[in-house]
Design a protein around this nucleic acid. Structure first.
Lengths: 220, 220
DNA sequence: CCCCGGCTGACAGTTCGCTGACAAGCCGCG
DNA sequence: CGCGGCTTGTCAGCGAACTGTCAGCCGGGG
């Protein structure tokens, strides 16, 4: 899991990155408020450790901007200023936790773990099978990173194949899943859907295994 | 929202309950570890403030039992013991936040609010999604900085879409949220509301994903 | 060589969602 | 109590996107 350490003192930043690294994070360092804002807005982190005193943009402003933009990444705020007013301000800005300097690395790591554990319940489930990637939250499909527009029916078919990627899925089962067993469709309807998908995704994504069914290619 | 204050000193407990009450919680008091464990296990609270030094059962044990039983209620731990080892232990036991005594009631309330806000899945009081900005405390909407007057119903729809911006929201879910499942409305009512909103906000704010639902545009 | 399972492109029926108009409810105000 | 404005559900018509069907094609296996 990626972690971002925003801290202008290079020595502390290195310590932070080291401790987080030993705790299993892939830690990156950033010493500048504006760059931090940009990184947090564009990259995907599982955790951000944010110092408040920063050059070019104050840490609180950075945090507020992230939250205003809807970024939900867990943020742990560090500060040298220990007054309770400052703490209240930090928390109201959207910090998930707050740690006054000086602190022990052990405590920081424990809090970081707690934050990550807490936010683990709401991850973005994304499946990648070969070049195909399928975001089950947004209900979007991409092939080799390029987004592809698919219809609801096509999406349901793909999602079902992805879920059962380990085996070929027989046409009867797909028909049942897509239409419900009461509403009987001609078998050809399925082939038509597959054909349309293949046209959108390119060959080499949905494989036909004659007599067995369909299976997503590159599925182990 | 109900809050439980677990604290054996009656004076502090009363202070806690008072402060939380003024912050909008329905605060209850409990001074005994075992009773606290029972209450937290059987009742529904939106927040629990837990002191560690308790008669009959230690606060940490209470917390661990709740977590072992799968209770997800936000817990804010208080303690007189301020060493970092104790704090690490509390956090690893499953505390969502930690406050060393002595503390200011203002800070406790701020942290309590943050915990509740976080567990409700809602971020900052102001959200910006593309050109759309939505102030959830003042219940106002602006597009490109220009305030837009919306009705209560329209606002609730927008707020719901904003909260679930990461995914397309199916019409059935929106109908449930806006009207409650008992009061069945024609599906077209929803489309009418969306149409009115689009007329006010302009195109390119609420996107329709045919077969999936509605989604706020520019939701990354 | 023929057959059969599966594929494809075209086409048309159907569904889905949008819009403008209208009327019923709701609320404040005189 | 009546009135007017605002909100909001319903209706009907429309356009576009979706999707099932069909006829013909392909390719491998017997």
């Amino acid at each position: 899991m990626r972690a971002l350490c925003v801290e202008d003192d290079p020595r502390i930043a290195a310590d932070l990155a080291g401790a987080l690294g030993r705790a299993g994070f892939a830690a990156e360092i950033c010493g500048d408020g504006e760059e931090a804002w940009f990184l947090g807005d564009t990259e995907e982190y599982g955790l951000i450790v944010l110092d408040l005193g920063l050059p070019r943009m104050d840490g609180l402003s950075v945090l507020k901007r992230w939250r205003a933009a809807g970024r939900q990444v867990p943020v742990l705020v560090l500060t040298a200023r220990g007054s309770w007013q400052e703490r209240v301000e930090g928390i109201d800005a959207g910090a998930d936790d707050y740690l006054p300097k000086p602190f022990r690395m052990e405590e920081l790591v424990a809090r970081a773990r707690a934050l990550v554990r807490r936010s683990a319940g709401q991850g973005a489930p994304r499946q990648e099978i070969g070049a195909l990637s399928l975001d089950t939250t947004r209900m979007t499909v991409a092939i080799g990173g390029q987004p592809v527009a698919v219809t609801a029916l096509e999406y349901r078919l793909l999602a079902y194949l992805a879920l059962h990627r380990a085996r070929p899925v027989p046409p009867t089962e797909l028909l049942d899943h897509l239409y419900g067993d009461e509403d009987a469709r001609e078998a050809n309807a399925l082939e038509a859907v597959v054909a349309r998908l293949r046209r959108k995704l390119g060959r080499g994504v949905i494989a036909t295994r004659r007599g067995f069914g369909y299976q997503i290619e590159g599925a182990a």
